[in-house]
Design a protein around this nucleic acid. Structure first.
Lengths: 250, 250
DNA sequence: GGGTTCGCTCAGAGATCCCTCAGAGGTTCG
DNA sequence: CGAACCTCTGAGGGATCTCTGAGCGAACCC
């Protein structure tokens, strides 16, 4: 296969593909057009084929047409509730993975049983990294894993992240991270050798409704350095005026 | 056999398979579509091939087509009762295993009749872990046990669980557990080194109609720690903001 | 070299998460 | 019918996490 024919993300990273090498297909269902747009953009950036819908009816129509591998589905929809849509979706395509989006106070309500079938959910407001990570997890477990680097393990130099165990080691030593630190590092590790601006990081790692300053990114980079680079050859580098890079030690 | 051809669960665990290596086939019969959906999802997650039916007639049709190894059968059905279906099922496939779903107040002699035939039952409302465990037990006893790790014994580090004897030992010492504690630990042991969220645990270990808070999970984790980790190197770890992991002591 | 911008780090307030205890209500079993 | 056990709710308290603000140093620009 020619390199030019290879399915890659816009970022140049090899994409998670279907077994036949074609892009993963995802349907996004949310009645907030802005949110649907942001989500679709983020998923396209992963190199996936995306289609959006605003209600249950068009979600079903979209599913019939696209035959998606995964669906990102808001639990609260104008016409029906998510659980009914889930059933119809499984009728259309029994092996589809579903990632539910729920409001924080809906969690205990109708979510019962959803994760039992292997599906998953995230609560609003979420970060795009989290949505992408969960989707990748779902797709991987469902067998959509043609990518070489497959398995829940990610490596940059001597830095290793096991997403399932939520464990990070540097040169074999365990590095304990808070949730935000973990997500930030995951984003950096998924984009090694590539300068990421503070704005980019903020957009991906922090929830979409975060109102604060880009200053937090500096703060969390400093936390990460203390834990990941502590006393070792640094992997996290500042590019003044541009952002940060994670580079494997040569 | 290639690794890629191996029949595995979505969670990556090796699946229980038929003697020829193909997935176990299960028919789910329940007239509540939500429940049938959740059950089917959970069984598919085990790596099994599942088909659902909502009444006795379509159950028979499904059985003729799928030729299932096991049937999960609601005793109360809209058109007939489960026992009539059972008789017809045995005509279609004499060696099929049956797991009955019964209401709490089902007459006792009927239950006695069920278990006499080597089949089993669970009372509603049940937890998915319980259904899956019972099915695995039935299939194992029926000779559907090609999996290496077969036998009713499960081991993580020095922690050993005998599912049939309902006995748990840590480093040889007997650990006495209540029913819920036992099921929680079984779920953890079936997913070692893998962070499980409170929602996941709730969906799997508690009954599908449980309306309470995820707070109970914390409580039961604390009970388990007192019994399993008591005075020893801890195996149960909290991952703040994510869930819990069971890890063998290194 | 001096001023300015940019980035790093410390300190601390407030929020959140998690653990544990105590006890009510239900169930089981003798 | 009573005792033991089990399950769950609620509250308190402690630990951790996240973010703001401020001070300081380094890099950049003239």
């Amino acid at each position: 296969m020619l390199v030019s024919e290879m399915n890659t993300t816009r970022s140049g990273r090899p994409a998670l593909t279907r077994p036949d090498g074609t892009p993963v297909r995802v349907l996004v269902v949310d009645d907030d057009p802005d949110l649907a747009e942001v989500l679709s953009g983020a998923l396209r950036y992963e190199g996936w084929e995306v289609r959006a819908a605003g209600d249950g009816a068009s979600a079903l129509a979209g599913a019939r047409e696209l035959r998606p591998d995964a669906v990102v589905l808001d639990v609260m929809l104008p016409d029906t509730d998510g659980f009914a849509v889930l059933r119809s979706l499984h009728e259309v395509k029994p092996d589809v993975c579903v990632l539910f989006l729920t409001a924080r106070d809906t969690v205990e309500d109708r979510i019962a049983g959803i994760t039992a079938g292997g599906d998953d959910y995230v609560t609003k407001p979420f970060s795009l990294e989290e949505v992408v990570a969960r989707l990748r997890g779902l797709l991987r477990r469902a067998g959509m894993a043609r990518q070489q680097e497959e398995g829940p393990r990610m490596t940059v130099g001597d830095l290793v992240m096991d997403e399932e165990a939520r464990e990070v080691t540097r040169a074999g030593d365990l590095v304990e991270l808070s949730p935000t630190e973990f997500e930030l590092l995951r984003f950096l590790m998924r984009n090694p050798r590539r300068v990421l601006s503070k704005a980019q990081i903020l957009d991906r790692v922090w929830s979409y409704d975060f109102g604060g300053q880009a200053h937090v990114v500096e703060l969390y980079i400093s936390y990460l350095r203390k834990k990941v680079d502590a006393g070792r050859v640094p992997m996290i580098h500042t590019v003044r005026g541009a952002g940060y890079v994670l580079k494997p030690v040569v």
